[in-house]
Design a protein around this nucleic acid. Structure first.
Lengths: 329, 329
DNA sequence: TGATCGAATGTTTACGTAAACATAGAGAAG
DNA sequence: CTTCTCTATGTTTACGTAAACATTCGATCA
């Protein structure tokens, strides 16, 4: 920076002003400084800058890994949204869903250069009340509403209601449910909403079959359901499990959607190309990410955390895996 | 830090020594400092530390996004490997595969606080010779060998040979190939190796059908192949396309593996649960990531770039989607 | 016993930047 | 014409840490 200043014949402070786009610099001076910068290949030193300003233009992101479709999409979308806002994303994947692990990741990130932390809390922690050290802005995604940090999530309740209602409206007496793992917030909300929707409609509430999001677990669940008579509609808590259920049904000789209707949740890229194409609920990950990042930046620049919870509306995608139930025998 | 020093009754330099685990500090003093740190909730300031040391303990990562399975797995594994080495990962996703976009991301990352940059070059850039500004260590994954940076990748050539040979050894006269997009390095290598293996074996080399990694494109390719007679073995360049091919074949009335054998590449979690379970090639993403990170750290700590290319051995996973060809009519 | 060494700790300084304050000069207002 | 104001720019300083150098004191050795 001193070299640039010398070459341009100005003080280093003027160089700083040019770098930061301050208004009160003569146009001619600015050009001289800019060309000096180019000539010397000058790059501002982030560490020194951060030391003075206290800002890093970087967000921390804690997640349980990229292996599940939903997490990967969320992380991807948050990264892109942050980038548009001029922030980079510093990522940490934690192995186990304990509060200890979250705290460790949190410490590591705050020691790194981040202005705020996004926590994708896809799984229920071992302790109910997550307490994070104060001082660092936090936004949660896919977490528990009871925390005191602002949260953003797909409206799981609405999504599950849409798909359950869709199946009831087609004429099914009730809807069976293959749920996600019990330690997932998203799974829990989808199951609760399915339950509530059935009760509202006066339909019987059949027992829940639990899976773990995988196609394999969906297949197992599907075999259980295929053995029961009277199963005409199944709502699986994600598309991968729906895929497994479909396969189990086909193997058991049930036609989809003639004998049994099947719906999922997520709308994988593949889901539109299954045979038959899968009715599902599309989550708008991009909007979720936008909200997360803007809540984050509000906190970083604005001040104290608004303890809001923002829900993003999902969309029911009706395809050919759902239809009216077969005529009663 | 000054407060901690005052509370512990030592100089700030001694606090620094304790923080950095230097050996020459009396055990009793160390304890006093540690408890003072705890009492005051002291956290070292990364910016100041980086300003002095010139190190950030952070890696930059440039990728084309998390939407494809391979990329997501690689990013996930790199993140975990970096974490084990005490580094965090600063991620940037670029939208288009132009050299300009790569340079922009590169600039943004070097302006941020990173010690080195990992570039996952999953697609062929618009310019053949990627030139990155010197001074920052770079390791490439899944890129072009011709670049001057160290590179790590799955041995695509070996993987494709393993699966092609497997099909030939089963007795198939030749193997058809559904390739990945033409602008993908990985796809290109798999196709070249398939080609070479057929030639070595003296088998006819049928025309390549191109897909874009998606199940939908695999389905289209499968419909083309199903119309031809004499197709008894198909090697799809990834599992998703293999899935599409399988479905097209089944729709055309071909049984798998009785009439036609199908193999993929990647080993998705789902692939073992398809019907029939898919023969495929498993990439060891964790080992790739370990290599990337250790090459990175060598450069950061050691010095100039070793211009090596490290290949990680993949593994053929034989399942039930491949078998001997049907008897000739 | 005195010289020498080494371990523990303290003092000073540099890292590169932006904020805060200072200055000069041009124009406006009286 | 003087004074005030505003703009462009320069000077000084602080940010929090670790490196480099300095000091103290007890132990070791001839």
């Amino acid at each position: 920076m001193a070299d640039v200043a010398a070459l341009a014949g100005v003080s280093s402070q003027t160089v700083s002003r040019v770098v930061n786009n301050r208004s009160n610099v003569e146009e001619e001076t600015r050009q001289r400084v800019l060309s000096a910068m180019r000539m010397l290949g000058y790059r501002p030193n982030t560490a020194a800058r951060a030391l003075v300003t206290g800002q890093f233009r970087a967000l921390g992101l804690i997640s349980f890994g990229l292996s599940s479709f939903g997490n990967a999409r969320t992380v991807d979308a948050v990264t892109r949204a942050a980038q548009r806002a001029g922030y980079t994303v510093n990522m940490i994947a934690i192995e186990s869903q304990t509060e200890l692990a979250v705290h460790k990741a949190f410490d590591q990130l705050t020691m790194q250069a981040v202005d705020g932390i996004v926590l994708i809390e896809a799984q229920i922690l071992d302790t109910p009340a997550l307490r994070l050290p104060p001082g660092v802005p936090v936004v949660m995604a896919d977490g528990d509403v009871s925390h005191r940090h602002p949260m953003v999530d797909t409206d799981q309740t609405l999504g599950a209601r849409l798909v359950t209602r869709h199946l009831l409206d087609l004429g099914h007496e009730t809807v069976w449910h293959v749920a996600g793992p019990e330690d997932s917030y998203a799974a829990k909300r989808r199951t609760e909403s399915w339950h509530a929707t059935l009760k509202e409609a006066g339909a019987a509430v059949p027992g829940v079959v639990f899976g773990d999001w995988s196609a394999a677990s969906g297949y197992e669940a599907g075999r259980v359901l295929a053995r029961r008579s009277g199963v005409t509609a199944v709502f699986a808590a994600n598309d991968q499990m729906a895929l497994g259920v479909m396969r189990a049904m086909v193997e058991a000789g049930r036609r989809i959607p003639d004998d049994v209707s099947i719906a999922g949740f997520d709308d994988l890229d593949e889901s539109a190309y299954l045979s038959p194409p899968l009715t599902t609920v599309r989550q708008n990950f991009d909007v979720v990410a936008e909200r997360i990042v803007s809540l984050m930046i509000d906190q970083i620049e604005g001040g104290p955390a608004p303890s809001t919870t923002a829900y993003v509306t999902p969309e029911l995608i009706v395809r050919q895996s759902t239809a009216a139930p077969p005529p009663r025998p």
